[in-house]
Amino acid sequence: MNKILLLILLLLMLYIDKKRGFKLFLSLILNFGILVTIFYLIALGANPIIVSLLGCFIISYVILYLVNGKNIKTKSAFISVVIVLIITLALIFVVTKVSRIAGFGYESYEEINMYSYDIGLDYTNISISLILISLIGAMVDSSIAISSALYEVYDNNKKLGVKELYKSGINIGKDILCTTTNTLYFAFLGDFMTLIFWFYGTHTSFLEIINAKTFVAEVIKILFSASGCLLVIPVSAYITAHLVKNKHKSID
């Protein structure tokens, strides 16, 4: 079934734009390869946090430079993503350690009880890298949305100063806030429904749910995805404003 869906997806991508669609399709395959490599390295015992952070840098490089092309917009988006990723990682680290959402919840026990749990890998770090990887796509999306829209603003009115550009970057950010949080909410909801059905089937009460490991882990995951997008807005606005202005000066 996935093969047919994959074919439909490829055709649709090509319909929108032949060259870009093909590139995008290749980049998805490449990203899948990168992800599996990250997963595999973690399973081999490499430090999950370092591997996934480096992996996220490579992934954003692939999405931004290989698919969208090398230009001032993607450059500022890339720099913003790198900065915000590091800030967010620090936050994720603290929250995951404190709230102890590592490991599996009761609903997965049936699925995992065929394995031995004595694997000698701390799942706290694996939870941290899970959150980090799941937010990278959304962060890149917000970042490039801000930098390209801001570049467009600058292109139409070259007299704008850095401060004005930054301000209009924030305004653009406000426009995408609602839709981005919605995209994430519904994407997580798709996964979430399974969990809700399980809770219902096992007669778990509301109070038990809000303390359950998996539920809290899912909520923290979506909150971090959304917060990553939020944090990238001012950073991307600031960096893009400076980059386009500096480039302008060097041309003069």
Partner: peptide, 27 residues
Amino acid sequence: DIMSTMSGVLFFTYIAAGLPIFVLAAR
């Protein structure tokens, strides 16, 4: 422009969820 970044949002949001069980199985 939209399709390349938006598909990335969904891609990583979904595929990342497989990490814990992948590591457990590989180990």
